[in-house]
């Protein structure tokens, strides 16, 4: 039976003071995170509680649930502040020195000291590594969220005029992004009741077969819903690619520029543009 719980109980205040000193010394440029003392105290309480219940070698056991939960919260908040995984793990590892010192003072003989230190070291290692794992997962979540946000940012469906929508596409289109963009265009058509949508691909460097097919499917789907699409801004290279790939654009309306497309859209909606005063008059 390990003495760790007893050591923690008797020496809690001293360990905490030493640990905080250690952390302050190694604090980087960002300085100490807020609520540091609170976090440390909660960590020690959990450590004492969980180790009293037994298993010191497997932190996957249920008695470590709350400790893991605490470390998860810690890792996530630190990741958000921009800490590296080793900085977060370092928080746990920095407890080693004060804890080992306390074990040394409490140990009756050298065997006990060595045994307890080895045990505590392994335990803190696995807890520290766990923060790294969570940290990594937290990062992945952040990346995924940012990808989703970027996806939304990159699908700006704008209303040009009563009944006329425009979707200016910028950047490389992969097939997944094209699909998302197109679905949101069709949703917007229903929302606004726009009967004409201009898909402008001036900002798209290349178009492969799959993307071209998605574009065509969107045009076909919009037509089924009762709206017409005009594709504008097809670069010469893209026109060449489309012909070489053998993707038939069929009866899709295409225009060289967004301006041409808009003027056609206005005409189809029954508007006409009249210049009242000649330029340079």
């Amino acid at each position: 039976m390990s003495k760790l719980p007893d050591v923690l109980k008797r020496r809690e205040a001293g360990i905490l003071t030493e640990w905080l000193r250690e952390l302050k010394q190694s604090a980087g440029l960002r300085g100490l995170p807020p609520n540091l003392e609170e976090t440390c105290r909660a960590f020690l309480v959990q450590l004492a509680q969980a180790s009293r219940n037994g298993n010191l070698t497997d932190i996957g056991k249920p008695e470590w649930n709350e400790m893991r939960h605490l470390l998860e919260e810690l890792s996530v908040s630190r990741a958000r502040q921009g800490d590296t995984p080793s900085e977060t793990a370092g928080f746990v590892f920095s407890l080693k020195q004060p804890l080992f010192a306390a074990i040394r003072d409490e140990a009756k003989n050298i065997e006990e000291m060595a045994g307890e230190t080895w045990m505590a070291s392994r335990l803190l290692d696995s807890l520290g590594l766990y923060t790294t794992e969570v940290h990594q997962k937290g990062r992945e979540d952040i990346i995924q969220r940012q990808q989703a946000e970027m996806m939304e940012l990159s699908t700006p469906v704008v209303r040009l005029w009563e009944g006329i929508l425009a979707l200016p596409l910028i950047g490389t289109l992969d097939s997944e992004r094209t699909q998302t963009v197109m679905e949101s265009l069709l949703e917007k058509i229903v929302e606004t009741g726009a009967a004409i949508a201009i898909i402008d691909i001036t900002g798209v460097p290349t178009v492969d077969t799959l993307v071209a097919q998605h574009l065509l499917k969107t045009v076909a789907a919009a037509r089924l819903m009762g709206a017409d699409c005009i594709i504008s801004g097809i670069r010469p290279q893209i026109a060449q690619t489309i012909v070489h790939l053998g993707v038939g654009l069929g009866d899709v309306i295409t225009k060289a520029s967004m301006a041409d497309a808009f003027s056609l859209a206005l005409k189809r909606s029954g508007y006409s543009l009249i210049r009242h005063q000649p330029e340079n008059a």
């Binding site: 679905e183 076909a220 789907a221 089924l224 819903m225």
Partner: peptide, 18 residues
């Protein structure tokens, strides 16, 4: 024919029935 929903329209195109 009026009011076809976007998801239905996309599916019909995929099905090969434009």
């Amino acid at each position: 024919v009026v009011g076809m929903r976007p998801a239905v329209a996309i599916t019909l195109v995929e099905l090969g029935l434009p």
